[in-house]
Write a protein that binds this DNA or RNA. Structure first.
Lengths: 218, 218
DNA sequence: GGGGCTCGTTGATCTGGATCAAACGGCGTC
DNA sequence: GACGCCGTTTGATCCAGATCAACGAGCCCC
């Protein structure tokens, strides 16, 4: 991971900077498509916020089975850890820019600021809430429900665009939803056949949702 | 027959009380077996810490499918919320005593105390860490692996007793592991047949783990 | 003591999604 | 343009775990 780091002060905008205030050092960092941001077990020095791009965080079992915990999009923060080392691996799905700051700085900054605890707590409980919702999906939903839930989630997080351009592969989606890539592909085809969505062009990663309400009620 | 599962009481050394300091009001509350502590969607006024007993937190789908997020034992805290309402239901599995305090009080107390943010953050990230581990289990482990993981988790949390007295039913375990109760029962019988565990008496809820290492490496 | 619970185990069968396999484009390289 | 490499779709088959069903043990209440 030998990418140059430009350390400088950032203007207040977005969660991380706003939380920390002007006094705290943030630096920017760029990752190329497919590169690792940090690995499971590495020491956790920084907290990250995405300014552009997309990141996946996952855990691996010894035999290669992979579970993606979450996809992170611009504005999202990740890398909060309980102890001193990361509990999962983070990788850039596409070219990604991040803003990073030291864990310690965040805590200090938070303590010296009224209301800071509440905002910091909100960032972490947002991750927690997502994890809780995802456990329900993984434990109790069918393949079709999982894929529909995924589409609705991504649609909302991308701001309900006319055309949704997914950055991740079918395999990534499968590992996120606890399925195989074939099952994801079949579920998408089923939804297409039910006129709930449409593929734009031949690339299969651009999807237009045709009836959001019906998708959502799965 | 009422089994006392708190013989291995872990030091509750002041998580909630220490965090809050002496100034903050805590009150105690007792819940009978099977009663609801709070429901999904209710307003979230309090944070809870168990002093004795066991609690399950779950989400429900409209058709009755249930996913248990976590089992909470003495010393554990739960009820942290992002917004103003609970995202899941909490119920006492057995007779349970809790210490409760207002959300707001915790935040205030934390802010007025150096190092408080860090301890509070740890409590929440502990929940987050558990959720992340559980997603891997739900998304990518086999039935036998799930049950083995569950046993190892409970064993550790109960302080590795000679004899483990599980407070929860097979259905609770199944809804926690994303399985059916029959599959849980079969997995336990398989492990018994492999001499990895033994049922004590006829009640089936007292289990002695015979070879912890082999269980853990599943 | 007996009826009616609840809880757990075990057996038989079914099925949703995994696995194995093939084929199709798009894309980059030579 | 020909080739190989991905990523994706689609088809055929398989199987882990769900579902359906029976039964037994413990417990409560009358």
């Amino acid at each position: 991971m030998l990418v140059n780091i430009n350390t400088h002060r950032r203007p207040v905008d977005g969660h991380l900077a706003a939380l920390a205030g002007e006094r705290v050092l943030c630096s920017e960092h760029r990752y190329r498509r497919g590169t690792e941001i940090f690995g499971e077990g590495e020491s956790a020095e920084y907290v990250y916020q995405i300014t552009a791009g997309a990141v996946r965080t996952h855990k691996l079992l010894a035999d290669g089975r992979r579970q993606i915990n979450a996809f992170h999009l611009p504005g999202d923060m990740f890398g909060f850890e309980n102890g001193t080392s990361h509990r999962f691996t983070a990788e850039a799905i596409i070219e990604t820019n991040t803003r990073i700051m030291r864990r310690g700085s965040i805590i200090e900054a938070t303590e010296s600021r009224m209301g800071g605890t509440k905002s910091l707590l909100r960032l972490v409980t947002q991750n927690l809430q997502h994890a809780e919702d995802h456990m329900l999906l993984l434990g109790r939903k069918t393949a079709l429900e999982r894929v529909a839930t995924f589409l609705v989630e991504m649609d909302a997080r991308l701001g309900r665009p006319q055309l949704m351009a997914l950055p991740m592969s079918r395999r990534d989606i499968a590992d996120y939803l606890g399925l195989t890539l074939e099952t994801v592909s079949r579920a998408l085809s089923t939804l297409r056949d039910q006129n709930l969505l449409r593929f734009e062009g031949t690339t299969q990663r651009r999807i237009e949702l045709l009836r959001r309400e019906e998708l959502a009620e799965l």
